[in-house]
């Protein structure tokens, strides 16, 4: 009887797995996404990333660039990125904060970091990064990198309306709302682009 139950549970899980693989209609295979990730993102009815807002975060980071949602990186990445040393040389810019603010901002972003989220994109990002060596850029997470690898320099780097891959809002028209779905994408100067 006990063994039967186990078999039953296994069968149900396998069924869920195949259904979620079929339902994963975001255009590619998602090879590196594990079973857990697939099952979770299938059960999660929350698309995109959680759109949390925090005034101090907006003032500290959002005055120079789009205030990327915390769920676009795992805590490990945020901790590296928001260390005092890194902020003094933030990809060549100075983004220093006083210590009290630095801690508050770090606290905010890690509270809503990718691995703690039940939003689909966050789950996928969290499952695509190495925990021992978390990437410093959202575009260096394997999931985001894979989703954009078909784009050429013509469409991104050399496109005056885009210029760098981290410029989410250039193409993702609803990025500020935490929405990144395909049908909200339009690439400047490429009106006929389709995935």
């Amino acid at each position: 009887m006990f063994i039967d139950k186990k078999v039953l549970i296994f069968g149900v899980l396998a069924a869920i797995s195949s259904v979620s693989a079929w339902a994963d209609n975001d255009g590619d295979e998602g090879r590196e996404d594990g079973f857990a990730s697939r099952a979770m993102s299938f059960f999660s009815h929350k698309d995109g990333v959680e759109n949390v807002s925090n005034q101090l975060y907006n003032e500290s980071c959002g005055e120079c660039h789009f205030a990327y949602q915390p769920g676009l990186l795992p805590s490990g990445s945020w901790q590296r990125l928001l260390s005092s040393d890194q902020l003094a040389d933030h990809f060549g810019e100075n983004a220093e904060l006083d210590e009290a603010d630095r801690k508050k901002v770090l606290d905010f972003v890690t509270r809503y970091a990718a691995e703690k989220s039940d939003y689909r994109i966050s789950i996928k990002i969290a499952n695509s990064v190495s925990s021992s060596n978390p990437p410093m850029r959202i575009t260096k997470t394997r999931y985001i990198d894979r989703k954009h690898h078909e784009l050429s320099d013509r469409e991104v780097k050399n496109n005056k309306g885009v210029r760098f891959l981290g410029n989410c809002t250039a193409c993702h028209r609803k990025a500020k709302e935490g929405v990144y779905e395909e049908d909200t994408v339009s690439i400047p100067n490429f009106p006929n682009w389709e995935d």
Binding site: E59, A88, E93, N94, A95, E96, L97, D98
Partner: peptide
């Protein structure tokens, strides 16, 4: 506070 933050960042930059 904002003025101080930006003097620090931008003078150094």
């Amino acid at each position: 506070k904002k003025i101080k933050k930006w003097f620090k960042r931008n003078c150094k930059w």
